[in-house]
């Protein structure tokens, strides 16, 4: 997948902070997972948002820490699984209990943290980049969740479901592509 190739060292020449901050935005699988989680927790209500977003942030931090001890390849799959599940729930216009959303957000966050682990030259650069990734992913999820939380009008409900269906469709395409690669 192109995003797998892009996942590390995706932003050259922008400095450690901006490379970390923008990583979750420019890597499609990470962006998709964040968008799905934001939509899911936002559509599930305020209580879910209050648990889901901190869990996502904590998950990213744990994932960044784990990246030094586990392999960073193959982290796209759990990211896409999380996006698929969250996107399907949003598309079906279902709400989930806060602990379910929080668990899914933690899983997505951990996969994202491992995926976004910086190939930094020094410890300070790695910390700078990692902190920026936590800030960037949490800020983006917060904005999307707040937008989803404010959905009131009928067309806004439809728009949220359309967004969820696009996320689901993209995730399914990813798995179809993986199957096609395996069958070759």
């Amino acid at each position: 997948m192109p995003q797998e190739a892009l996942a590390h060292g995706v932003l050259k020449g922008v400095g450690d902070f901006y490379a970390g901050l923008l990583h979750p935005i420019v890597v499609p699988a990470e962006l998709l997972a964040i968008a799905a989680m934001g939509l899911l927790v936002g559509r599930s209500g305020l209580a879910t948002c209050r648990r889901g977003i901190p869990m996502l942030a904590a998950g990213v931090a744990v994932g960044l820490g784990l990246a030094s001890v586990v392999t960073t390849s193959g982290t796209t799959t759990p990211l896409v699984v999380a996006a698929l599940v969250a996107g399907a729930i949003v598309t079906a216009d279902q709400r989930v209990p806060p602990w379910v959303a929080a668990g899914l957000a933690a899983l997505a966050g951990t996969a994202l943290g491992i995926d976004a682990a910086p190939e930094a030259k020094s410890h300070i650069a790695a910390v700078t980049s990692g902190v920026a990734t936590i800030v960037g992913s949490t800020a983006l999820a917060t904005i999307i969740a707040a937008l989803a939380l404010r959905v009131e009008k009928h067309w806004q409900h439809v728009a949220a479901q359309v967004a969820g269906s696009w996320i689901t469709a993209w995730a399914m395409l990813y798995f179809a592509y993986q199957l096609a690669l395996l069958s070759r």
Binding site: C49, A139, I143, A145, R150
Partner: peptide, 14 residues
Amino acid sequence: AAILAVACSARLIF
């Protein structure tokens, strides 16, 4: 703009 977007969103949730 970025700070306001995040701050307004966070204020709505937390």
